[in-house]
Amino acid sequence: MIQLYSTIWRVSGRRQFILILLSLAVAGLSAVPLSYQKEIINALTHAKIDSPSLFVMCAEMMGVILLSLTLKWLVSYRSGTLGEDIIRLLRKRLYLDNANGKSIPKGTLTTTISAEAEELGKFTGGAFSDPVVQLGTLVAVIGYIASSQPGLGVIALAMITPQVIIILATQRKVNELVAKRVRILRGATNRIVNEDDGEDASTIEEEFDAIFETRRRMFIWKLSTKFVISALNAVATVAVLVLGGWLVLEGRTDVGTVVAATMGLSRLQAPTSFLIAFYRQVSAARVKFDLVRELLEEPQASARKTG
């Protein structure tokens, strides 16, 4: 993981730094609309606001949302173009290395240039900015909920912790299946490109079956994890409504806080789901990075041995 990120920073550090700054700005704005929602609802509930003030607060809230969306657009555009630039760089490197005498099997070269390079490049574009935005959003929203009502903040934090544990426990198995699938696909493609004798047709069919079985097992792991995480999110939402409703009835909090906390949980589900998907992506990218690096280094090692 460290080697993957150090390589990404070495190739695109300056552009990644700009993306990080923009991502921090997006994260910093994430809890501001919740504050406006709380203030507007409480003011309306207690009839402590007039029409001009309501319009001003709603306009300010919309301005913050539009600013946040503009920054998100900019982050997405810059990370997308950076990813495409890295894809181009990887494809040129693989093609030129092969053209300069490295004996990379044609099937392996084809799958690496067409699929693996693209997946690695896309990951590189958001390798730093994506987790900064989502982690920053989690910290900002949980901090806001906890500052408004500590008990509701504890529920929000408790919703995330088991999800992290589940992902860490299951992702290693998924990574093994990803690496296995890539290696099987490379072998099958090499046989097809090299047009081996017909006696290998059954072997290729068996490899296609193995790829299917590998993906099937990946689906089981991923979908089961998603089911458990969705159930945890539902439990957290119900818990906030139960605790928040009880606190309102006891006069220990206000309706605006409960509404903001409920909305905050909804805001937390998106970055949490994204970070889970991102962790899976970075784990798969690390596996494919190692495979591509092996592909580029093996011919060099062979040349040194020959010399």
Results as ranks from 00 to 15, higher is better:
Ala301Ile: 02
Arg186Trp: 13
Thr272Ile: 05
Leu138Asp: 03
Asn42Trp: 10
Pro33Gly: 02
Leu89Val: 05
Trp221Lys: 14
Gly307Trp: 13
Ala301Trp: 09
Leu241Asp: 08
Glu213Phe: 03
Glu297Trp: 04
Ala43Pro: 00
Asp130Gln: 10
Lys72Ala: 05
Ser114Gln: 05
Ser68Gln: 15
Gln269Thr: 13
Arg93Val: 06
Leu19Phe: 10
Gln16Cys: 11
Asn233Pro: 00
Leu152Val: 06
Ser283Trp: 09
Val282Glu: 15
Gly151Lys: 03
Ala27Gln: 10
Val32Gly: 05
Glu294Leu: 13
Phe128Gly: 03
Ile160Met: 10
Ile155Met: 04
Leu152Gly: 08
Ser148Trp: 09
Gly251Lys: 04
Pro131Gly: 10
Leu94His: 04
Arg286Asn: 15
Leu120Ser: 08
Pro52Trp: 01
Tyr77Gln: 05
Val174Lys: 05
Gly80Pro: 02
Gly307Ser: 15
Tyr279Pro: 00
Pro33Ser: 00
Val287Tyr: 14
Arg191Val: 11
Val64Lys: 03
Asn42Glu: 07
Met218Gln: 14
Phe227Trp: 07
Ile220His: 04
Thr272Gln: 07
Glu298Arg: 15
Thr262Trp: 14
Phe274Thr: 14
Lys72Leu: 03
Val282Arg: 12
Asp50Trp: 04
Tyr5Val: 09
Trp246Pro: 00
Ala236Asn: 01
Gln281Ser: 10
Leu4Cys: 06
Arg91Asp: 06
Arg10Thr: 08
Val238Met: 10
Gly151Ser: 08
Ile167Gly: 02
Ile142Thr: 07
Ala25Lys: 09
Thr189Ile: 09
Thr237Phe: 14
Gly28Glu: 04
Ile155His: 05
Thr214Asp: 03
Ser51Thr: 11
Thr189Asp: 08
Asp290Gly: 08
Thr108Asp: 00
Asp97Ile: 00
Gln16His: 14
Phe289Val: 02
Ala234Ile: 13
Leu69His: 14
Asn42Tyr: 12
Ala27Ile: 12
Arg215Trp: 12
Ile165Asn: 12
Arg172Pro: 01
Glu118Cys: 08
Leu268Ile: 13
Arg93His: 09
Trp221Cys: 04
Lys106Pro: 00
Tyr5His: 13
Leu94Phe: 06
Arg217His: 01
Ile204Cys: 04
Ala31Gly: 01
Ala156Asn: 00
Leu223Pro: 03
Thr108Lys: 03
Gly83Asn: 04
Gly63Gln: 08
Ala234Asp: 01
Ala59Ile: 03
Arg252Val: 07
Leu34Gln: 07
Leu96Met: 15
Leu74His: 08
Val178Phe: 02
Leu19Val: 03
Ile8Ala: 12
Ala261Phe: 07
Leu265Thr: 02
Ala117Ser: 02
Gln269Leu: 07
Thr45Gly: 09
Glu60Gln: 15
Ile8Glu: 08
Glu297Val: 10
Leu24Arg: 07
Ile113Met: 10
Thr272Trp: 00
Thr225Met: 10
Gly13Phe: 12
Ser302Asn: 13
Lys305Tyr: 14
